[in-house]
Design a binder for these strands. Structure first.
Lengths: 250, 250
DNA sequence: AATTAAAATTGGTACGTTCCTTTTGCGAAA
DNA sequence: TTTCGCAAAAGGAACGTACCAATTTTAATT
């Protein structure tokens, strides 16, 4: 699959990735009408790979909620997945809440309300694992869909991690900038989701009636090494907050 | 369910489970002060198990957000985990929302508001994967903490899956009943979390002022085989809805 | 001292084997 | 017909090997 000269980063040459995609396609195409997949040994035979690789691939599909397994019985497609596929596309896909909303071709407008460097408050300091007195960017933004503002975002980023941040970087996707220009990948998040009465400020910015509430998402995003990169507090127009989650009990 | 000598179901005789617990304890005890674990080969040597088993154990800790790995670098403890351990105990632990709230010794009061058998509405039918005309229990309950009602729960369970449900079973933990008496394990859930303006009914039952909102959790719980066992619609006092989630990006 | 290149470290992928445990299904017995 | 027990089917666990890829460390060079 060589297109360009050197880089290109072909992600698809891993066996288990290949199997995942193939199975996913077959499932989406309705190949297994009885909702049951062939057993692992057969799959290994069909794909001409080891059973271990099949296991690894299936494990990934399990985590996504596409299939589930039961010892002694087999591997089955989650009926919910077939019924409600679009939901599953979103489930769990929540890091970069900021970025998550770039869906359906609706490109969100981002308005920078405030952009400063301030000393970290105790809460921020604690959350970002900073020493007392360290400085952070405070980034306040208002996000909209087609002139409908839906989210007030208050984010804090340690300056030591991104010393050269500018208002221009902030106006777009912060994570895209971090990734493309600084090779920082944001790969984990810890979020708390709740609801709250809307404040006067919420009502003004989000165009809410006094009785209408906001959804609140607050959390920490961190990079590969586990270093927190952003503490974010988000207040959303209640009609626009929908958090989908697929959970394995265990 | 015979409690005799033979069964006992010792869950702990699995190698990787043993490793998970040991590592978890060592981490909690602060053994790795530099936040770095020994490499996989060393761990295998120390625990006298194969590297594969170490990998399996570490993988589990990764999913829980306790540690993370980076190729070429090593395995590191998530600093957030150490800082905020109690949060991680709750994260993702959301199936049986009904049951999740039995924490802190505060035993919640459950009041059965309504308990009937009704034909499944289109939405319920769709969600529970039923044929048109099938019947479901409709279970309406109000949950409280120490006289503070916090959740109105409207649940639907197919009668064919639990033909002998009674009001008595419903008054306690439904899932405990299913598990202990019917050997049905609820192991997966798909939830959508949002917020809404409180209705007059909400305000009355949850003791809310008109301006105060409710948190909404709606979703499907299913059992081992992927069969949906309950569709549940929950409206929570906004001060009591806190959903924690740890998410791996990718 | 700074830069660069090689080597060691460390996790990732893939395969294969062996044996165990849980379910399921079938056939024999009651 | 129903029940019971055994064989088969299917996933789970564990081990081990070999080699690959990203990162870090070390050494050599400039």
């Amino acid at each position: 699959m060589e297109l360009g000269p050197t880089k290109e980063k072909v992600v698809a040459d891993l066996v288990y990735q290949r199997v995942i995609k193939a199975l996913q396609n077959q499932i989406d195409a309705g190949k297994f009408s009885d909702l049951k997949l062939p057993n692992e040994r057969i799959l290994a035979e069909e794909f001409q790979v080891s059973r271990s690789s099949i296991k690894k691939a299936l494990n990934s599909l399990i985590q996504r909620g596409v299939v589930f397994q039961k010892q002694g019985a087999g591997t089955f497609i989650n009926p919910l997945y077939l019924k409600n596929r679009p939901m599953f596309d979103i489930a769990g896909d929540n890091v970069g809440v900021t970025d998550t909303f770039q869906r359906n071709g609706k490109r969100p407008d981002i308005k920078v309300i405030d952009f400063n460097v301030v000393p970290a408050s105790p809460e921020v300091q604690e959350s970002l694992f900073l020493e007392p007195g360290e400085f952070v960017y405070e980034i306040q933004r208002l996000r909209s869909f087609d002139d409908q503002p839906f989210m007030i975002e208050d984010g804090f980023v340690p300056i030591k991690l991104v010393p050269d941040l500018t208002k221009k970087n902030i106006a777009g996707s912060l994570y895209k900038y971090l990734h493309e220009s600084r090779n920082i990948a944001v790969t984990r998040s810890f979020l708390t989701i709740s609801a709250d009465v809307s404040t006067a400020n919420d009502q003004k910015l989000l165009n809410l009636k006094p009785v209408e509430p906001v959804g609140v998402m607050e959390g920490i995003f961190f990079m590969d090494r586990g270093t927190p990169i952003e503490f974010s507090h988000m207040r959303l127009h209640y009609k626009f907050m929908r958090y989908n989650t697929f959970t394995l009990l265990n």
